[in-house]
Design a protein around this nucleic acid. Structure first.
Length: 288
DNA sequence: AACCAGGGAAGAT
DNA sequence: ATCTTCCATGGT
């Protein structure tokens, strides 16, 4: 067992991160302790990494703990990457002070990108969440992980694509997946298991290239590709205009009579680049 | 009971 | 290419 204290050189609202993570019932959280346990897999070996906040938003610091000395550097690097601790949120904040979202960012400052812990899980979760209300969507992802994942010391490790690739549609229908959704999940997992789709390799491509490749897959549309880029890879310039939550948040913030059209969203969002992901996150946050 | 939900595919134009 | 319809399933 090792532990490492980490101090950031930027502001970071980790309590908001914990709040966002608390939506996912399969994540091991102790919010009063400001602590989260993260499943990390290296070379097929399971590691549990504990991240605990001990600082403030203005002066954030953390204690990171895990067991494997061998992977210590990789684990710390992964945690930095996951929580984007290198990012200077002050820059984002000042960028939006010069836009039509100035009030929004004053009300909800320094919202970090909260990534999912695993690229494959993120993609499955995003497909599962298509067109479902959040409550039921999380019921489905919870059943998915309970049924096909593995729990170690209270921490859930996500199913592998290989395992899901071997399922039948009926296996997921039992969990109240629609037949169509079950096909999307299984067929996409088959592509990954067969090596036709490599999520790790998409890290090296631009947003546009990733969207173009993912949208070819049956069951993945623009919304899913954009959300995967944002919550999977943690990319900074996504604005999912088809998203109902984004539409409702824009309606509320700008005081519209009805939900905005795609064209109206285009117009409102001019000037938000190249950090539109932070606009999206902060808009979602405003209606939580 | 009707409409909604952090969409997408398939069909029609 | 773009618009319309249908698909599934629970929540409010």
């Amino acid at each position: 067992m090792w532990e490492e204290k980490i101090e950031l050189h930027t502001m970071y609202d980790f309590d908001y991160t914990l709040y966002r993570l608390s939506y996912d019932p399969m994540i091991f959280l102790q919010r009063d302790e400001r602590l989260v346990k993260i499943p990390v897999v290296f070379d097929g070996d399971y590691h549990i990494v504990t991240v605990q906040a001990i600082g403030t938003t203005a002066k954030p610091s953390f204690i990171v703990r895990s067991d494997s000395e061998e992977y210590k550097d990789q684990i710390i690097s992964r945690i930095f990457d996951l929580f984007q601790w290198d990012r200077e949120l002050e820059k984002i904040q000042s960028h939006f002070q010069q836009t039509n979202l100035d009030k929004l960012f004053r009300d909800y400052p320094a919202t970090p990108i909260v990534r999912d812990f695993d690229l494959y899980y993120c993609l499955m979760k995003t497909i599962i969440h298509q067109q479902l209300n959040m409550k039921f969507a999380y019921v489905l992802t919870t059943r998915f992980i309970e049924q096909f994942g593995e729990q170690v010391d209270g921490v859930w490790f996500y199913p592998t694509p290989e395992k899901i690739a071997n399922l039948q549609v009926e296996d997921l229908r039992k969990l109240q997946f629609s037949g169509r959704k079950a096909e999307y999940v299984i067929d996409t997992s088959k592509k990954i298991a067969a090596g036709e789709l490599n999520l790790e390799e998409l890290k090296d491509k631009t947003d546009e290239e990733v969207i173009k490749e993912l949208v070819k897959i049956r069951g993945i549309g623009t919304w899913t590709a954009e959300n995967w880029l944002l919550f999977g890879l943690g990319r900074e310039d996504l604005f999912p205009k088809a998203d109902i939550g984004i539409q409702n948040a824009v309606k509320q913030y700008f005081g519209l009579e009805r939900k905005p059209t795609i064209e109206e969203l285009e117009a409102f969002s001019s000037g938000w680049e190249p950090y539109r992901s932070f606009a999206s996150l902060t808009l979602w946050r405003s209606i939580e």
